[in-house]
Design a protein around this nucleic acid. Structure first.
Lengths: 246, 246
DNA sequence: CCAGATCATATGTATAGACATATCCACGCG
DNA sequence: CGCGTGGATATGTCTATACATATGATCTGG
């Protein structure tokens, strides 16, 4: 009697799941059928096109929003996002966990640690304007006794007051921060340099050898928490990742 | 006119929205209250705890799943994911779009292009076992007339037969692939090298100057589509990104 | 012609209920 | 003891409905 007699798992009858809807829309975006800026059909229209409820369409669109493929504006509609070019996203990593996860022995060595009022250079590095206290830490991470990376870090003590109480002689600052301080944003810059005498000494490589440099600033709600420069011996160390696209 | 109509869903009365639920769970994970591997309460329990419907809890958990913070297994429950260490995620970028998006002039130059049966080295580079045809392309990208990056790319013609028909003298292979071939996974490796004579010549830098190297293999459903090595002049070029965490 | 009020509309959030599906676990058979 | 099988259970998906909310569009008065 009811109109929806065939409410069963018959996915062959042209009633797609939200995943199939998501994939279909994704395909249209990736193939350029719906180019950046294009307004895609309203939920109401998609619901008719795919023959499902608005919630189902909405779920597909929500996921695409989270994946940064589309942008939704109330009253206006849903639009294909312009991709962010020149963008590299690095996950925040804890070097200690990174090394032990590989089954290698980890050693940590604090080289220097100083606490001071933020100098102009410190403020520039953190990207903050007002003066305050900072901690600067230099340290070295080794894997199986071989230098793995050297780290130079600045922590804004006003943003992270708890850092005063941490003992960075025992625990690497990256590990401590990752476990004690929640962050919301990070900004990375990757580059390559040649080792000067200091870097060569710390990493036990030749002067002039290439090094991979990762500069990172970490924020919470727009406020800088810490700025770090990691120096890796260039030819030996590689950062590898798999990205689930689609 | 009244400042607030007495809404039934007043947020003060301890009935959180799915976003607040998401944030609460996220906080517990990030603070270590729920460490990696921990099984978090069942949807049913969370629904009681937060006083909302299962769908609402489910939406919060779905988003956390998409953000890779948790893992859900039918019948077993929901677990805090172990973070992927040593992982760097780079978005796939189209260098041409990247440069033009910055408002700089883009120039492209095909240096070499050869089509052949896959040699052992080619198969190793692609990570495939069976023999087949490949295209190797060498090219250079310039921004405002200055070398921006040199590219050496291998395309598996069995996986991407359409590539036979593309004219890589006119269109950069990266742009062509991005617009014609959907991919699902990518694997990146970042390192630093010093420029040899060939690289120095191509990038117009001194021999011995540092270069940033990005090696990338792109897959669809586990099958390698293409392998590319991008060489950037190290000190001048930086990859910058912001990551919305949390 | 512009500023402010108002309306219409598309997305945002939430719900109860239903059925689908994978899989852990225990039971029972050989 | 090993192994297949079935039931229990937690997540996965879908629906119809309702109301919230932001905002583009329109109307209106100065």
């Amino acid at each position: 009697m009811s109109a929806s007699t065939g409410r069963s798992k018959s996915r062959t009858s042209g009633k797609p799941t939200y995943k199939q809807i998501r994939l279909d829309i994704e395909r249209r975006i990736l193939t350029g059928e719906w180019p950046p800026g294009h307004r895609i059909p309203f939920e109401h229209q998609l619901m008719t096109r795919y023959g499902c409820s608005r919630m189902t369409v909405s779920k597909a669109l929500s996921e695409l929003t989270q994946a940064d493929l589309i942008e939704r504006r109330r009253r206006a509609g849903t639009f294909v996002r312009r991709p962010n070019f020149l963008s590299a996203v690095l996950k925040i990593t804890d070097i200690r966990a990174e090394i032990t996860a590989l089954g290698r022995s980890y050693a940590y060595e604090l080289i220097k640690s100083s606490r001071r009022a933020a100098a102009t250079a410190d403020r520039a590095r953190l990207g903050v304007l007002k003066t305050g206290k900072v901690i600067e830490i230099g340290c070295r991470h080794c894997a199986d006794g071989v230098p793995f990376a050297v780290e130079d870090r600045l922590i804004d003590l006003d943003a992270v007051p708890k850092a005063s109480t941490a003992n960075f002689a025992l625990e690497p600052p990256g590990s401590w921060l990752l476990h004690h301080v929640p962050w919301t944003e990070a900004e990375h810059s990757i580059s390559a340099i040649v080792a000067d005498e200091e870097a060569a000494g710390a990493l036990d490589i030749a002067v002039g050898a290439p090094c991979l440099v990762i500069d990172r600033r970490t924020f919470r709600s727009g406020r800088t928490l810490t700025a770090v420069r990691l120096l890796y011996p260039g030819e030996s160390h590689k950062l590898v990742a798999r990205f689930r696209g689609g």
